[in-house]
Amino acid sequence: MNPLVVEQVTVAYDRQLVLEDVSFSVPEGKLVGIIGPNGAGKSTLMKAMLNFIPRMHGNVFVYGKPYEKQRHLVGYVPQRNSVDWDFPTNALDVVLMGRYGHIGLWKRPRKEDVDIAMQCLDKVGMLPYAKRQISQLSGGQQQRVFLARALAQDASVYFMDEPFVGVDAATEKAIVQLLNELKMRGKTVLVVHHDLQTVRDYFDYVLLLNKRVVAFGETESVFTYDHIQKTYGGKVTFLSSTHIVG
C-alpha cells in the first residue's frame, strides 16, 4: 500500500485556480523532490495536502486512509520564516513540540519525551545548543531545530517546505544525511526544492509542478531537459544539458 496517494487535488484562491487536478502516488521509502518555478503552487500543494487551506476538489490518502484520519502519521517542516524566532523559548522546547501529539492534550511532557527530543537534537548536531534561546541560533541552526522537531514527531510521511533555502553548507549536508536516514528507516519524504543542480543527487522521485503536474516519476527517467523546459516555460537557460540528461 502506498504511503501517499494524491487524487485530483484542485485549489483556488479568490476564484483563481492555483492548482489543477494534481494526482500522484508515492511508494514507501522514497525521497521526492517537488520542483517548479515561483508561483507554481509547490507550498500550496503541501498546505492543501495538510488541510491548512481548503481543497476545492480531490483527496489525499495516507496508507490507504484519508489524511484526516492519519494526521499522526504525517510530519511537517514549515518554511523557516513562517514563525517568529524571537519567541521566548529554547531549542529543546521547540523540539519537544514535536512530541505534543504523543503527549496528548493538557498533559505535561514526560522524561521519555525529553529524552527523545534530546536524541533528535543530537541527530541534527544541535545537542550543544539545546538550551540556547532560539533567536540566537543561525538560520541553518534554526532549520535543523525544525528538522529535529519533525523527527521527534516520529511520523511515517514527511512534508518539508524548502528546508534547503538560506542554509550553510554544514546544514545542507546535515539535512541530506537526515533525509537518507529517514529513507533507510522506510519513511517517505516530500521536499519542496529549488536547486535544480542537486535534484539528481538528492531525490529518488521528482514531481515537476506548474499548477498542474508536468511530470512525476523516478528522477532518472522524468528529470529530463524537455520536462524541465516545459515546467519552467522555457526560461531555464543556465543549465547545460549535461546536468540534466545523465
Binding site: 498546505k47 495538510l50 488541510n51 491548512f52 494526521r71 499522526h72 504525517v74 510530519g75 511537517y76 514549515p78 513562517s82 514563525v83 517568529d84 519567541f87 523559548t89 521547540v94 513540540m97 514535536g98 505534543y100 501529539g101 503527549i103 492534550l105 493538557w106 505535561r108 511532557p109 522537531r149 514527531q153
Partner: peptide
Amino acid sequence: LVFFKEFKIITFDRAFAQGIGVP
C-alpha cells in the same frame, strides 16, 4: 495552567500545531 502547552504551540507555530492534531 491546563492548556499552557497548547497555547504556547499555537502562538509559536500554528501550522505545525494543526499538523499534529492540536484543535
